[in-house]
Design a protein around this nucleic acid. Structure first.
Lengths: 231, 231
DNA sequence: GCAAAAGTGTTCTCGTTACACCCATGC
DNA sequence: GCATGGGTGTAACGAGAACACTTTTGC
């Protein structure tokens, strides 16, 4: 391994990344956590995380563990913030870059998740996590609320084909308040970014709800010109 | 020094923080940069930065160098994002946590600034900076624009007593577009967060403009209950 | 036929925008 | 007295909020 050592007299630190993995299922926002496998605190619930290796960026590290735990590639991932208090980790001085990931629960590889001792919890049943991970979760929820007001990140939590009532229920979960279905639908469709399909999803009602897809290409164009999504 | 070494087999990394230091003067947004003093790239323009030491948080490190360069305590500082591409630093593998700082130019200690070879540049005259620092600046500008829509961070760039035309001119600089003065004033005052003083600032006009202060206590209360500042 | 969720329009309110003139003062 | 920047009000418009009933279909 090449070692340039230009900045010789400087201290190096342990750098970790922890992922707040959001999912959405049955009208509830969920979080993926797992049982920690390294000392100290072995066996306690923890966010999914890893140390950052010499040859990878922080994003690389996060993607690596997300694939490991969920089997999914191309997950939506965004930086939340850095946790660097000197005494935040009982094990050793270590900073952690928290990132949140949004994944489509119906896609994830159940087997992998279970093999790693991971588990989905809904927010109100979330157990006590190790270190400052509960703070990270709280900050992440705040973060996606703010972000959701400007970008259609909610869609990352739904299958490619989704219904409008599904989407509404998701936003109700994110904002923790009921939304008027007529107004929601009106505003949503006014963007002209949803493509109505000829299929219906009949799993939640007898009548069935039409499925839609999101026109990402069209959105990209709007985004460039400073367009803000959503309420 | 205590060394717990719990996470033994892990790699450690160099961790730096770079500060995008904004000021506002003469209707122009400005940036404080300085001539780099360590190899490689000695003598090139660089953001103000430092490595993070073992016994300090990232914020501590930033505050340390801000005091050093400006002599100012209690500077507004907020994390921007982490730059961690493997090859981003020619010197050695090193991640940097970029933070933006907002300071009141009229307060800063000119002597200290000059002693460190630092200099204020306005945006359009900003030179090429080392490494990925120009990217950081661009991201920071985007960041304060978004933030300014929700929080009164602009005030951190003005003296404690300021006039409404000053504030307007600041927001025009941040958003890079002219604002209507009647509408600006109306909305601003509608929050009931400005306290009109009996003094006028006569430096910019013969008539003089009334000075105001911001009611931070009242704002704190509103902020708690989910209040959003500004356009 | 009835329960349960999907889908549909209109009105009202309030905030945003557009717009032009007088005021105070130093020179 | 005039040039310069500070300060003021109103009307038109559009987006957001409030609000209730019909449709479809499985059972």
């Amino acid at each position: 391994m090449e070692e340039k050592k230009t900045y010789t007299k400087q201290h190096t630190l342990l750098v970790a990344t922890d992922c707040i993995v959001f999912g959405f299922d049955q009208g509830l926002l969920k979080l993926l956590v797992f049982k920690r496998r390294i000392a100290p605190l072995v066996g306690n619930w923890s966010l999914i995380g890893s140390f950052v290796n010499k040859d990878e960026s922080v994003t690389d590290a996060a993607m690596r563990i997300l694939v490991q735990f969920t089997g999914l590639q191309d997950i939506f991932l965004e930086e939340l913030k850095v946790y660097s208090k000197v005494d935040r980790d009982y094990g050793d001085r270590c900073i952690s870059i928290a990132q949140y990931a949004l994944i489509r629960i119906d896609d994830y590889n159940e087997e992998l998740v279970e093999k790693h001792g991971a588990k989905w919890f809904s927010f109100d049943e979330l157990p006590r996590l190790v270190l400052d991970h509960n703070d990270m979760v709280a900050d992440a929820l705040e973060g996606i609320r703010i972000k959701a007001r400007r970008r259609p990140i909610g869609l990352e939590l739904l299958p490619e084909k989704f219904t409008i009532p599904q989407l509404q229920s998701l936003y109700e979960a994110i904002y923790q308040r009921p939304l008027d279905n007529r107004n929601f639908r009106k505003k949503l469709l006014s963007f002209g970014l949803l493509v109505k399909l000829d299929e219906k999803d009949k799993t939640t009602s007898k009548k069935g709800a039409f499925l839609y897809t999101f026109d990402y290409d069209k959105y990209k164009v709007l985004e460039e010109s400073g367009f803000d999504f959503f309420l």
